[in-house]
Computed example of a mutant assay.
Amino acid sequence: MLEKHSYIVDASDLQLSKLLLINSRQSYREMAESLGISINSVHKRVQNLIDSGIIQKFRTNISLGAFSGIQVIIFGKTSLFSLNILKRNLVRDNRYYWVTFGAGNLVYIGAYLHSIDELSEVVAFAKNAADLSEVIVGIGPSFPIPGKINDLDKTDLQIIRELQYDSRKKASEISSIIGISAKTINKRISILSEKYLVHFTIDWIPNKKSDILAYLHLTIEDDYTPAQIESQINASYGENNVYCMQFSNLPNFLFSVWWVDSFEKLSKLRESIQSINGIKQIEINMMYDGVILETWRDKFLHDSIKL
């Protein structure tokens, strides 16, 4: 296996990664215009992120909302010492999509539920698989989705399947495989996007680099909302903040992912963030290993093509 080469990541790489996490099918020209850099620079940066192992796949998912599904994050202390052991335990259930190990034996596990009725079972399985203690469970917010899974016909599913592990695949390539015109494919892809039936994203693993990936737990004052704090973070610290996540069952909590190049930078950011009005407390957790898992959403695509 070829060793991933060393690559120094800068602010433009993080912004590029954020654009691709939101929509990995957008053109190099669109990304170049958003970042204020050349198309050639975008192309080189993307290739470097791939070569260094930070971008592992350009992925297409049927949106969780189309299934009326729910995202949850489970985190706590583990007695396990190996990510591979935990991965082997979790893959016995295809509802878990992501797991990350951090300092102090902290582990984060992401899961996709078909419905809230599965919550107790999913949490219990994760606690057992990771031997977790001090568990916190965050339930992702619900969003209205105009499109549902039954809106997808066989051709839509064929297109999504071709894009599943390569969201940037050209319509002309798909056309030669499924036998309809590239123009029709592009039109269908646009409709799928407009109805929020698909999400074009990337499998993004920044812990393959020497930079620091930090998960921040922000406790919010009662007079403020997580949304207000997230807005301030995005406005002032977008250069280092990857994304924030709010939980419907934790109204005074905001989960935030940060990517920095030194502990000194992280320390300064902590001091600065602590000064934001509305933040009561900050807990920083350093992450050092992670993996993305296949789930029932991926299996649905495979099974649907066989029908």
Rank of each mutant, 00 (worst) to 15 (best):
G36D: 01
L35T: 04
V46H: 06
F58V: 04
S27Q: 09
S41A: 13
H43E: 10
I54L: 03
Y28T: 12
S24E: 01
L49V: 10
G53W: 00
F67N: 05
K57R: 11
T60A: 13
I50H: 04
F58N: 01
T60N: 11
I50G: 04
F58D: 01
L35C: 08
E30G: 06
K57Q: 03
I37S: 00
Q26D: 05
N48E: 10
R45E: 01
G53D: 05
Y28C: 11
Q47G: 04
S34H: 07
G53Y: 01
F67K: 09
F58L: 06
A66I: 06
V46P: 02
K57V: 04
G53R: 03
Q56A: 08
G65T: 08
S34T: 11
N40G: 09
A32L: 04
Q56D: 12
I54R: 00
N40L: 06
A66H: 05
N40F: 03
H43F: 12
D51M: 07
A66D: 06
Y28M: 12
R59M: 07
S38K: 09
D51S: 11
S68E: 14
N48S: 13
R45M: 05
I39A: 07
N40Q: 11
T60P: 08
I62S: 07
G65S: 11
L64A: 02
S52M: 05
Y28E: 14
N61G: 02
R59N: 12
Y28H: 10
Q26G: 04
I62D: 02
E30P: 02
F67M: 10
E33I: 12
L49P: 00
R29A: 15
L49R: 00
E33T: 12
I39Y: 12
R25T: 01
L64G: 01
F67L: 11
S68K: 14
R45W: 03
V46C: 07
E33L: 15
V42S: 02
I62R: 05
Q47Y: 09
G36H: 04
S38I: 12
R25K: 05
Q26A: 08
N61R: 08
I37T: 05
Y28G: 12
L49T: 05
D51I: 07
S63P: 07
I37C: 01
N40K: 13
S68D: 14
G53K: 04
I39S: 07
S34D: 12
F58W: 03
S41V: 10
M31K: 14
V46I: 15
L35W: 01
G65W: 14
T60R: 11
M31H: 08
R59C: 06
R25G: 02
V46Y: 06
F58C: 01
R29G: 08
S24I: 02
G65C: 14
S63K: 09
S68Y: 10
M31A: 15
A66M: 05
I39W: 07
I39Q: 15
Q26P: 02
R45N: 04
V42Q: 03
H43W: 08
I39N: 13
F67D: 04
D51T: 03
I55N: 00
R59H: 13
L49M: 09
